[in-house]
Every structure is written in C-alpha cells, then in structure tokens.
Write a protein that binds this DNA or RNA. Structure first.
Lengths: 190, 190
DNA sequence: CACGCCGTTTTGTGATCACATAGTCGGATG
DNA sequence: CATCCGACTATGTGATCACAAAACGGCGTG
C-alpha cells in the first residue's frame, strides 16, 4: 500500500515465511488474502508478484477512488469538528515534510493517513475498507510514479479540503477530494 | 452470494473439506479469501460463519451498490446495443419466473445475472469485482429478506432500466438503477 | 554466436500431524 | 430446579513432507 515494493516484484512463499520467521502455511494465507483483494497478482502457475497495472486499470482505479472517497468525505463533513481539522493540518505538515525530503514511501504513507483520518469520521467501515483495497492495488504503481517525479509540489488540494471542511462547503469538498485523488494519478498514465 | 446460506450459519474447515473432498488446507485458503472479501465472518477465535449484518451495515452496503452500479450502468450505456438489451429482456423473464415460483435463490441469482450482464459492458473489471464483493456480503441477508416477503412483485425497475437503455437516457438509467438497488434493501432494514 | 534441449533447482499444492484453545455437554451442588 | 464447574470434544493454527510442475541454467548443435 505504501509503495515499498516495485510493480511486478516477485515473491515466494518460502521467502516470505523466512522473512517473518514462519512456515509456508501462514505465508500462503496472507498471500491468498492479499491476492483476493487485488493487492497481489497470482500467475496461472501460482507464482506471486505485485501487480503491474495497465493504463486502463489505473484510470479505473482512479475513478473508483474518486467515487468512493468523494462519498466518504461528504459523509464525514457533518461530523468534522475542529479537533479533526487540527489533526488533518498536523498530518498535512508531515506530508509536506516528506515531499521536501523526497521520501516517496513516507509521502504515500502520510498522504493516505490524511485521507483515512478524514474518512474514519464518515462512520462507513465497509466503504473505507473498499477504498483501502483500492489503495492497496495502487501502492506499487504509486511508488513508481512519485519516484519518477522530479518537481514535487506541496499538497495544494489538501489545503482546499481543509478549507472546505472549515466552511462546511460540501460541493467544494467533493471537488477538492476528487481533484486531489485524480491529479496524481493522471500523471501516472504515461 | 445467491443466498444459499442463512446469515450467521457456522462453518468448519474440516466440514468444508469433507463436503468438497479435500483436506483442510484448501478449505482454509478458500475461507480466508472469502473472509478477506467480507463474505465470511471470522470470530476472534478463528471460527467461521456467514455474516449477520446490522442495519447500519446493510444501509452502507446498499449505498455502495447504488454508488458503484449507477456508475457501471452509466459506463455501459454507450456500449449497450440491441443484442445486449435482448439478452437483458430474456434474463428478466427468468427473474419474473423465479418470482412466481417463490424461488428466493433463483430470484437472487437471475437478478444478479441481469445486473452483471449489463455491467460487463462497462469494461470496468475492477469496479465490477468490487460490486460483486458487495453482493457477496449481502447474499445471506438478501435471502433472509426475500424469504420473508409474501407479496412479490415483478421486476418493475428492470423494465425502467431497459427502457432507459433503449432511449439512451442516461439520467433515467441512473435513477432506475439506483431505485432498483435501493428498493429491495430498504425493506430489509427492519 | 544464437537457439533449443535436457537435467537440476525452485516453487506451489495438498495432505497430515501435534498442539493449544474454545465450545459443549453432563453432572454435582446449592 | 437453576447454576456452576470440569472433563471431553471439536476446531483452528502452524509445521513438515511428498509430489508435480514450472523456471532456470548449462550444454551441445546448427
């Protein structure tokens, strides 16, 4: 999810088991679960690797993010009090820090934490879970993107999101979230 | 997915294995995968059962269905030619037949086939996959609903969907799909 | 030098087992 | 008669193993 693995990276059950000090059995279960969520790709012969997404798939996942996260943000809006907004601003500082440090994994992690913190207020666990599986699918690919980007701007749309939350501006919030989610992934389609 | 199992029905790995003539290992993998998709519930002690959904969860899943399926239908619309519409009408006759036969499982199965046939045209596999995991989560609960219903009406909204497809009427299609998806599940919230 | 073939190694699959724990049923006690 | 306790059973977990198939590498051949 955080882009620690490159797209197409191969994994073996024995390797995973050794890495975490367990046998093949728990490694297999974890792999199957992640594959069920689309986070890992299982070849026809059972080989495991992170997925290499096509442009079509990336666009589709971006559309899904927009669809789900706009709804989540909208549901969170009436419950977003000042303590939450403060917390979002604090996380946003970490995001900006990661950008200046050119830390791709740290950037993705803190960026997703920003979104998750907001969406948790939506009281919609099933929806949030699905959004997270989408993040999971995009993880390796997002890393490949942000690693390529030379020029990295501070999280502009995050500020718009916070402003819309403060103002209780639902249309503005929806637009800001959609833009934030779509922006980065638009660059990804090469 | 088709409501063949009641909500809260318990399962055992050994029982599943025996039922399908395999050992515990493949049964475990299947269960873990379905649990990852939300189709099965794993208690803290690892016990397996179908989920018993709360009203809040049902409402959330209904909202998800509306969100996803409206989008899928909308994407399918420009590609919906006459052959597809014919096929939908044919499936719809099966749906009506199941209604008159009071066959809950057959109704759910053919109803979902109607939706899936339409959404396949959307060329959005990730979105369709997510919609299907939502169906999976609702399966046992839907059965409980349709089993309770005495008065069963023919699929009114399906006809609206077909009419909107024929007319190329996107707003009408979106409304019809949303209504169709929401209608049944509204009754479910007791 | 490139291509293909064959033997070796790696890897996933499914079965089985020992173990710990949770669930269950029965009996004893108040 | 209800409740609680204890033994027994059922169940999931993780490890290990044998096997088959796929991937890999080196060798020989054209």
């Amino acid at each position: 999810m955080h882009g620690e693995m490159a797209p197409g990276q191969a994994l073996t059950l024995r390797g995973i088991g050794k890495e975490f000090g367990v046998s093949m059995t728990p490694a297999r279960e974890a792999v199957r679960r992640l594959a069920a969520e689309g986070a890992l790709f299982l070849s026809t012969s059972g080989r495991v690797s992170t997925p290499e997404l096509t442009n079509d798939r990336i666009e589709e996942l971006a559309a899904l993010r927009a669809l789900l996260e706009v709804e989540l943000a909208s549901r969170a809006l009436p419950r977003a009090h000042i303590a939450l907004i403060d917390r979002l601003q604090s996380i946003n500082m970490t995001v900006a820090e990661m950008v200046t440090k050119r830390d791709a994994v740290g950037y993705i992690r803190s960026n997703l934490e920003f979104h998750r913190t907001l969406y948790l207020r939506a009281q919609a666990p099933a929806m949030l879970a699905i959004a997270e599986t989408v993040w999971l699918q995009l993880g390796p690919t997002m890393r490949a993107l942000y690693g390529r980007l030379r020029r990295t701007e501070p999280p502009h749309y995050h500020k718009l999101i916070i402003a819309a939350l403060k103002a209780g501006d639902e249309p503005g919030l929806r637009l800001a979230v959609r833009s934030d989610v779509t922006q980065g992934l638009r660059l990804l389609v090469s």
